[in-house]
């Protein structure tokens, strides 16, 4: 567990500039370290900037103040070392599942046969065998997210940035996808930063849960949730229920504060 820190976030602040109106301080001096091969969940009340932090790590937004180091290099611009998975899947709708998965591979120096084999391997891994030639609009929500995860895993990023990936799925699919993600994580052992507003999901999936404050977002607390989760009844175990309660109390306090701030 004592892996070195792979992602170092130091005093990062971020202003969000809406098309109209004043600029908003979304993040205020956030500092956080993520270890290699760790599964870290980021929770907080809505609007706390947890997705913004993820986009900053991904290099999709410019960093105003502070710095983010990934593998010892500043996170300037997106790169295939950090694979992102979005809540709305962001599959290319005009490409079949296979072509979607191939998109990232085509930008790597691999022979064609190997690209095809890799794509097929990850389509199989997420359980989409037989749907290679389907367009995303013909897939269910859960299948779309499987395809998106396969597409991101296929170009072999060192870490996965997941932005509420199961937020658009129904409860059954969501719980199924959670166990499958854990299985995939155990197989591939990538560093994962997982943004969610679902405390249950965070405690179940992650080894550590970082709770953020209401806007402007800061890291309020980091809870260790690395207990044994192999038991199918883990959701009812005392340690699980206690951890959920602990995280939930922290998040709820912040949600209440956020509501109070909105009142005139």
């Amino acid at each position: 567990m004592d892996n070195p820190a792979q992602i170092i976030i130091e005093n990062v602040s971020h202003h969000y500039r809406p098309a109209v109106g004043r600029e908003v301080l979304a993040l205020e001096s956030v500092s956080l370290q993520v270890r290699e091969r760790e599964f870290l969940a980021l929770v907080g009340p809505s609007g706390c900037g947890k997705s913004t932090l993820l986009y900053l790590i991904g290099g999709f937004l410019p960093i105003d103040t502070g710095k983010i180091m990934v593998d010892g290099k500043p996170a300037a611009g997106p790169g295939p070392d950090r694979g992102i998975v979005f809540q709305n899947f962001a599959l290319f709708p005009w490409k079949t599942v296979r072509k979607n998965v191939l998109y990232g591979l085509e930008r790597q120096a691999l022979p064609r046969a190997e690209r095809e084999a890799r794509a097929q391997a990850f389509i199989d891994l997420v359980g989409l065998t037989g749907f290679e030639e389907s367009y995303p609009s013909h897939l269910s929500g859960g299948m779309k997210q499987r395809a998106a995860i396969a597409r991101t895993l296929a170009f072999d990023p060192r870490m996965l940035l997941m932005d509420e990936p199961f937020g658009a799925l129904d409860a059954q699919t969501r719980s199924l996808m959670q166990s499958e993600l854990l299985a995939i994580w155990e197989k591939t052992r990538k560093t994962v930063i997982f943004v969610t507003h679902d405390v249950h999901e965070a405690v179940y999936l992650a080894e550590r849960v970082a709770v953020m404050t209401a806007r402007p977002g800061r890291i309020k607390a980091i809870i260790d949730t690395s207990f044994d989760k192999d038991d199918p009844e883990v959701h009812r175990s005392k340690i699980f229920v206690d951890k959920v309660d602990e995280v939930w109390t922290l998040v709820r306090d912040e949600a209440v504060k956020a509501l109070e701030k909105q009142r005139p």
Binding site: G58, F60, F86, A90, F92, W94, Q108, T152, F155
Partner: peptide, 24 residues
Amino acid sequence: ELLWSARNMGAKDRELLWQILLPA
């Protein structure tokens, strides 16, 4: 998110128009 995904997978700025924006 479509543009970000493409850039994440290594698409260059000049590729985005033909590969992402026009088809989308």
